[in-house]
């Protein structure tokens, strides 16, 4: 029987692989494999054998050239041993096969800087938006309310009613676009799936701390027009159980955390469409 398989890439400063794999399993994937980038470059593990790719949070190469820049460069230029093919070709094949990619925090930064998002004209290798230093100039670990755009094509956020509550943990999360036109196309295409908001998820928030970084239009999460590629600065894998909520000792909360739905949706999509 075919199984749903999630891949979590780690190495060179990636940090959240364990909890991301845990979230994949809780969400319903039959298998979640943590693979070091060395095991992918050596050809031991192939992207083709998975339906869901997780690019997780961390500090790839220490964010030394700007977040995820060095890894974007590595993925574009490194060659998979024994195949002659560049790693980026495996990525492109994965995306073109209709599979799912979720980038969280550093993973979102990587997707954006490789050009995988928003990929407005189907070009997955042309950067048009970015994530740069928070307006505060500081790393921040704090929880944020995220208003969902119900009209978004994003497959990960289906079924979320008003919004979700998740932690952000980053120094470079301010969302910017290259042109106003790009921003308009993102908005009209309902690609800005999640926006920072006040409690209650009524309207997008531009003020700190509700908007922790000063993102344009309060954009916290972005998908491509197919809805299968999704990136967000907040950490869904950090809230899959109620005891991870900062106020769980004083509020009545359901067993599952708000972030789990993203992984459930991914598992369900994979089972229905990718086996």
């Amino acid at each position: 029987m075919a199984t749903t398989r999630a891949l979590v890439i780690t190495g060179n400063g990636t940090n959240c692989e364990t909890e991301a794999a845990h979230a994949c399993r809780l969400g319903g994937f039959d298998e979640a494999v943590i693979a070091h980038i060395a095991e992918i470059l050596s050809g031991e593990i192939r992207l083709d054998d998975f339906q869901f790719l997780n690019l997780t949070g961390g500090f790839l190469d220490g964010d030394d050239l700007g977040s995820a820049k060095a890894q974007a460069n590595r993925l574009k230029n490194a060659v998979v041993e024994g195949t002659g093919e560049k790693l980026v070709d495996q990525f492109t094949r994965f995306v073109n096969a209709g599979k799912l990619v979720l980038g969280v925090c550093n993973g979102f930064q990587l997707m954006v800087k490789m050009g995988m998002l928003p990929a407005l004209d189907g070009n997955n290798l042309q950067q048009t938006v970015t994530l740069c230093h928070n307006d505060s100039g500081r790393f921040q670990d704090r929880w944020c309310y995220l208003k969902v755009d119900a009209a978004s094509p994003c497959i990960f956020t289906k079924g979320i009613e008003k919004g979700i509550y998740l932690p952000v943990r980053h120094g470079e999360g301010k969302f910017l676009t290259d042109t106003l036109q790009t921003l308009e196309r993102i908005e009209t295409g309902h690609l800005a799936t999640l926006k920072y908001s006040a409690a209650g998820y009524d309207s997008p928030a531009m003020e700190f701390p509700a908007n922790p970084n000063g993102s344009t239009n309060a954009i916290a999460g972005l998908c491509d027009p197919t809805g299968r590629l999704f990136g967000l600065m907040p950490h869904p894998e950090a809230f899959v159980h109620y005891t991870q909520h900062p106020r769980w000792t004083r509020e009545q909360l359901p067993e599952a955390g708000d972030g789990l739905i993203l992984y459930k949706n991914a598992a369900e999509y994979a089972r229905k469409n990718l086996l």
């Binding site: 959240c16 364990t18 909890e19 500081r138 790393f139 670990d141």
Partner: peptide, 10 residues
């Protein structure tokens, strides 16, 4: 708040 106190999910 400048320290990540939540990574690893625990």
């Amino acid at each position: 708040r400048r320290y990540d106190h939540e990574v690893q999910g625990g």
